[in-house]
Amino acid sequence: MLILSIDTATPVAGVALVDDRKTCYEALANTGYKHSRTLLQMIDVSFQQTGYTLHDVDVIAVTIGPGSFTGLRIGLAAAKGLALAAGKAIIGIPTLDAIAHNLGWSRDLICPMLNARKGEVYTSFYHGGTRLTEYQALSPDNLVKTARRVMEQTGCSTVTFLGDGVNEYLSLLQESLGDAVVSLPGYWLPRVSAVGSLAADRWRRGQVDDVFGLTPIYVRKSEAEVRMSRLEGGGELGVNDQRDEAQGP
């Protein structure tokens, strides 16, 4: 069983070919938002390098968020195009699940955090392979509060933080949480092979997604919708204005 996995949710673009449990090919381009130009070329190279063709692939796996709105849609649109054209199954994998899976062996609390701009990170907490909290956009203050609560709940004394949000917020976290903060810089990058291996688990359980119905997990509403609901009197807590649409490809 061969899985082509795609990830364009963050500034890192990734393409992997995962054959059952073995990663045959993985390429990461940490070059910022150039995914629209590069993604299909990266996929093409993955086939050239391995000798596989799209025909050999059973499943197209793709990260569906949270992450950059535009980046998510580039990846998902490409995955849908490939799946529909070649008659392949599609499986969407939440971005944070894939990053946490990098540390699947750990017994610690794991907290992937992705830069969400506007002073927030997209985040969720994991323990023993289980997700404990919703996918959400949190300010560093609320992240610290949530970390304390989850540590108490699980009896863990440390949290391992991963993802590109760590760059920006590590010292802030250390100020509040002290020695409880563990960061493993080698595991910060989202690894698209993890997307493939999570998709392989779901494939074995027969859990494929619908190519027509699959949509991104945005976590946030669009800025215009937020403003509209404020105007209409429905106050939105924890949802910030965001001009993701201003971001280039």
């Binding site: 629209s36 996929i43 093409d44 799209l54 649109a77 490939l82 054209a85």
Partner: peptide, 19 residues
């Protein structure tokens, strides 16, 4: 609109490639 165009372009590229 750049974000809107990108949906069509990304889909079309993959679809043409897949076919």
């Amino acid at each position: 609109l750049i974000g809107a165009l990108l949906v069509g372009v990304s889909f079309a590229k993959a679809y043409a490639y897949g076919l």
